[in-house]
Amino acid sequence: MGTNENKRRGHPVAGKSAQPATDRDDGEGPSSTGTSASERAKFERLAEGWWDLRGPMRPLHMMNPVRIGFFRDEMVKRLGGGVDSAAALSGLAVLDVGCGGGLLAEPLARLGARMTGVDLEAALIDVANRHAAASGLEIDYRVATTDQLIEEDLRFDAVIASEVIEHVADPQAFVSSLAHLVRPGGLVLLSTPARTVRSFGQVIVAAEYILKWLPRGTHDWRRFLTPAETTGLLRRAGLIPLDIAGINYDLGKSCFYRTPDVRVNYMVSSIRPLA
């Protein structure tokens, strides 16, 4: 999710070797203490836009139920969350890499997960923090790279990177860093657009041009990974791919749905072996 903002700003998300990018196109500095009034106003607009269901992030909001559904189901199935469907993830420590304004972290927290969210965009972490506070949720948001978390020796029950991998400079290094951050027996969960003709048609043309959902140029099709490439990356990082599911858009009902067809968008679960 954070990725969308990253996409807009056109710089990569943390990979093992990727440092926070310096190619900002708007010259905006990171949010820290003592931000100027104009900056704050900008963050406020951004905050509004991020969580505005009719705003620029609408497609992500619309896709969110399908992604949360897959991630939740995988975590409940493999890690055994709570029995109560309203607290399905209680007791699980979950990391959301590229968390953006918190579209994924908040619902998962509401389902009982102890959430940590990282993003390179300080502005977005600011948005995320303020929205979580308004929603009465406690989420550990940080401006950090995956490498920084590894240095802290952190381990999670599940690590999620949703719509991130297609934006990183070194996908293999990125996946390996995710594998480092998950405990043995824990899950690494990904979602990303597919590099297929259908995906080109649907994601790039439909979303960006026809439906005008995403700012143009958000997605660079050549960076998309096929499902086979992604599972290959996971295996080489020592993970075992478990399941894969597709996301498609129903023009008639104007909603996204889960499908076995992985040619447009897909989600993968993988496990770090115990031994």
Partner: peptide, 14 residues
């Protein structure tokens, strides 16, 4: 139920 079982707001615009 769908919204709440996903941790989402049951009364938002979606």
């Amino acid at each position: 139920l769908d919204r709440m079982s996903l941790g989402l707001d049951p009364g938002d615009e979606m």
